[in-house]
């Protein structure tokens, strides 16, 4: 499914049936390309980082978490961590590892069972998750096959 469809979905705690927040953003790590965490919009409670490992199920109307205690504070996450907000791909510039700009990420297509990222969608194309080399604070870097390292004819 597309992350744009998941944004705004309620996150509920299974022990209390309460809504603890809504899905606001996502962080992605490469090799294998996967969602590392969901960033939640909460009512000022601060607890806003839900590691994918703690997602009990990703349903069509709500995301379930066993207990809200699993949800961490983003401010406790350091920059090296795969769940740091730096690793949110949405809105980032895409560069190939050979230094060619390839548009801007506008959406993430992922498997709601496994959290695997199937594609990054840019304003120009779909980039397979397997091509992602890095999602950083500045850009998303993707690999290119050696034969077609450059599309510019010489």
């Amino acid at each position: 499914m597309l992350f744009s469809e998941a944004r705004g979905r309620a996150v509920m705690e299974l022990t209390s049936a309460e809504t603890v927040g809504t899905v606001a953003a996502v962080t992605v790590a490469p090799s294998p390309a996967r969602i590392t965490a969901l960033r939640l919009k909460t009512r000022g409670r601060g607890h806003d980082t839900l590691d994918w490992a703690h997602v009990a199920s990703f349903g069509p109307d709500a995301v379930a978490v066993e207990e809200a205690g699993h949800i961490r504070d983003a401010k406790d996450t350091d920059r090296g961590d795969a769940t740091h907000t730096d690793h949110d791909p949405l809105g980032k510039a895409v560069f190939t590892e050979t230094g060619l700009r390839r548009g801007t990420v506008i959406d993430v297509e992922f498997d709601e069972q496994s959290g695997d990222v199937r594609h990054l969608l840019t304003d120009e194309e779909q980039i397979p998750g397997a091509d992602i080399l890095g999602v950083g604070g500045y850009a998303v870097v993707v690999g290119v096959p050696r034969e077609t390292a450059h599309s510019t004819p010489s």
Partner: peptide, 11 residues
């Protein structure tokens, strides 16, 4: 003026 970018996506 070109950015220097790591493969992890940091400038």
């Amino acid at each position: 003026g070109k950015p220097v970018v790591t493969l992890a996506g940091e400038d």
